[in-house]
Amino acid sequence: MIPAELLTQAGLILAAALTLVTLSYIFGDHPVFRIVLHLFIGAAAGYAGAIAVQDVILPQLIFPAVELAASGSTSTELLEFGIRLGLSALLLTKLSPRTARFGNPVTAILVGVGAALAIGGALQGTLLPQINASAQTFDLAGFDLALQGGYYGESISIILQGMLALLAMVSTLAYFHFGAEGRGKQAPLRNILVDVLAWAGSIFIAITLATLFSGVLFSGMGALTERLDFLRTIITALVGGG
């Protein structure tokens, strides 16, 4: 049995080595980096597969089979288990190109259920809440308060900010509107109002993409700082013997 302290120290040195190799990609691609990348893909895939087996396949397929064999069960439970087993077996036919077509109906179940969940999620999780939030773009309570307090500049600012946010939303949607009226033999032309809105939309989209970009950049900077600090700690400990 390897002592826990030794395992931790070996782990820290391995982590530091892997960090150094991965960060060295900044200077260009090289074979050691590729080995580390393949190590990562293998470990991550193995971990995800084990979690899927442990949390889903064992409790939904294997344990019920053991229970059925050990204590017997009602016909409903047997039918339920039969369906699960049948669907899983059909999906496994996808392993070979010769039998893959037998797995199509099972893939169709996954796609159909996924599509339905996506529709429900997009509708209830994004579209309706966003429409609701858009309806509250104008901070009416703040506007009332500013007006009552005599802060007219503030109240105008609240209205202007609401109008700007609304314009940003509408023009962004207009940017992705590609409908155009036919003009006989001439090329179809987009409505001039939609065209102007789409131009404004492109500006707002550039601003939003820059905001998202900066968010990812800050996360990356955070990760870089954390990794460099980790390396500094390990090197200090190794050099100082701590």
């Binding site: 529709i119 579209l127 992705f176």
Partner: peptide
Amino acid sequence: VLALGAMRGLLMGVALGTITTGVRIL
């Protein structure tokens, strides 16, 4: 203000696209 409104537009566009794709499958 600026990014919030456009982000809302983008999210609504993505949701509409997702619904369209889902309906096409269904």
